[in-house]
């Protein structure tokens, strides 16, 4: 188990290296630089700034310097938020993003699995068709459409919920819904499909013949088997939450990592963008590792060595 984890961690290094290299050169290919947006600076000051942040060095030297810093866990200073390092910004924004992402994921999992199971139990009934139509709609509506619509209805017209910012739980309702709805709808469809298949399988018939009540039949026998495709989806779902949070945090003005990422990209804040990209990359790798462990837990035939 520990050996497997170490193997996976070592395997992640080349992936991260490629990610870093691509991101490093791509962001520098974009026109403009970190200090272009501000008032016209005197050439001396600009030269000073460039020197301080080593932007006057040739590209390969900058790349090498960055690699060396990263290897020591230092993401460098932010170009935009001059008093802060990228490490500080990530430490600042990540807990907010994590909370939002986890809540959306739990919301999507709980309701998706519940609705999918209900639909499977009442296969081809009006309830099933109704749920699946709504789910299709949920999958089809992008979050950048859903979020402004919700703000319009619940914040502007009704005034029930705050339109943005972070305060109490009310601030989380709309972002969580906007981020989680499509995922919930997708999970509901996945769950329905696999649940129908599992409910038809022989070992479920055996369980019924043992005289199990429906509750045990579902929770002990059917759900773990039906969860395998849902668990597979959790990998891409995390990536979806990360890209989604970039949009949602910007729309709702939430001071999370996603918003730093967008502003960093707009301001050509090279180090900030790089830092967030690398951090997201690691996050996805870690999450995929967790998903693989979940497989082994769901199915004793899966063994990792």
């Amino acid at each position: 188990m520990l050996a497997y984890a170490v193997k996976r961690a070592l395997g992640a290094i080349p992936t991260l290296f490629i990610l870093l290299t691509l991101a490093f050169f791509l962001i520098r290919l974009a026109p403009g630089g970190p200090f272009d947006a501000e008032r016209q600076l005197p050439p001396e000051i600009e030269a000073n700034l460039n020197q301080k942040y080593h932007l006057d060095e040739p590209l390969y030297q900058q790349y090498g310097r960055y690699l060396w810093d990263i290897a020591r866990g230092d993401f460098g200073p932010s170009f935009q938020y001059r008093d802060l390092t990228v490490n500080q910004l990530i430490a600042d924004g990540f807990p907010v993003s994590l909370r939002l992402g986890l809540m959306s994921l739990l919301f999507a999992l709980f309701f998706g699995v519940m609705l999918g199971t209900l639909a499977a139990l009442r296969q081809n009934s009006a309830a099933d068709y109704g749920l699946m139509t709504v789910a299709m709609l949920g999958v089809s509506i992008p979050n950048y459409v859903l979020a402004p619509l919700m703000i319009l209805v619940f914040a502007v017209y009704q005034g029930w919920l705050p339109a943005g910012g972070l305060g109490g739980w009310q601030n989380y309702v709309m972002p969580v819904l906007a981020l989680g709805t499509a995922m919930m709808a997708y999970i509901a469809r996945l769950t329905r499909g696999s649940m129908i298949e599992v409910l038809r399988s022989n070992f479920i018939r055996t369980a019924r013949a043992k005289g199990l009540p429906l509750r045990l039949l579902l929770f002990r026998h059917a759900l773990p088997a039906a969860m395998v495709p849902v668990v597979s989806f959790l990998g891409p779902a995390t990536a979806g939450i990360i890209t989604g949070s970039v949009v949602i945090e910007t729309i709702f003005g939430i001071p999370g990592l996603g918003r730093y990422f967008v502003q960093g990209a707009l301001n050509r804040d090279y180090t900030l963008v790089m830092g967030v990209v690398l951090f997201y990359g690691m996050l996805i790798i870690v999450f995929n590792f967790i998903v693989d462990l979940l497989y082994a837990w769901l199915d004793p035939r899966v063994k990792y060595a």
């Binding site: 018939r205 055996t206 088997a225």
Partner: peptide
């Protein structure tokens, strides 16, 4: 079907 009739988990 003996194998399929047992819960693999």
């Amino acid at each position: 079907d003996p194998l399929a009739s047992l819960n693999p988990r």
